[in-house]
Design a protein around this nucleic acid. Structure first.
Length: 154
DNA sequence: GCCAACGTTGGC
DNA sequence: GCCAACGTTGGC
């Protein structure tokens, strides 16, 4: 079982969108090869991930989601009307993959990036490294436990 | 809105 | 296959 952190701009897709859906939804639009490889090779059904709001005030972890499907081709890459359309990706050899995710919980407060940076045990956490731009990144079991035990999350 | 960081593209 | 230019991410 692996742990992850998955970023989304809340103006585009927030944890409230996922919570309200009440069912699994596609985590669409990843267009980075490292992230694609995580989705394809390293994730598994049942993995848990922090839902992270980026480009937010403040940016930070807002809750938890669960990976609920195998990887499959991202349909938006073939949709000319989508902002995620990739004309170089062909249906018989799709470049970009998605998985379905389902809502697990929303914390009662945001855990801001600044707090993650100050928290003992999270010094090496991927999301706190400067210049780190992957929209999906791995979290270690120890880091997961540290974050889940921060005060005031529920 | 600025800009540092860094992934991707494409000319050669 | 190098690497400069470009585009995007995302914190601030």
């Amino acid at each position: 079982m692996n742990y992850w952190l998955m970023k989304s701009e809340p103006d585009v897709y927030s944890i409230d969108h996922l919570a309200k859906a009440g069912k699994p939804e596609m985590w669409e639009g990843c267009r980075n090869y490292t992230v694609r490889n995580f989705i394809r090779d390293s994730m598994a059904i049942g993995d848990l991930a922090f839902f992270y709001h980026s480009n937010s005030a403040p940016s930070g972890i807002v809750g938890v989601l669960r990976i609920s499907s195998e990887a499959y081709p991202d349909p938006t890459q073939f949709d000319p009307t989508s902002e995620y359309h990739d004309p170089k990706s062909l249906p018989d050899n799709p470049r970009w993959l998605v998985r379905d995710v389902e809502f697990v919980e929303k914390f009662s407060r945001v855990v801001p990036l600044a707090e993650l940076r100050q928290t003992t045990g999270l010094e090496e956490m991927f999301v706190t490294r400067r210049g780190q731009r992957l929209s999906i990144m791995p979290v270690t079991p120890d880091e997961w436990t540290v974050v889940m035990n921060l005060p005031g999350l529920r």
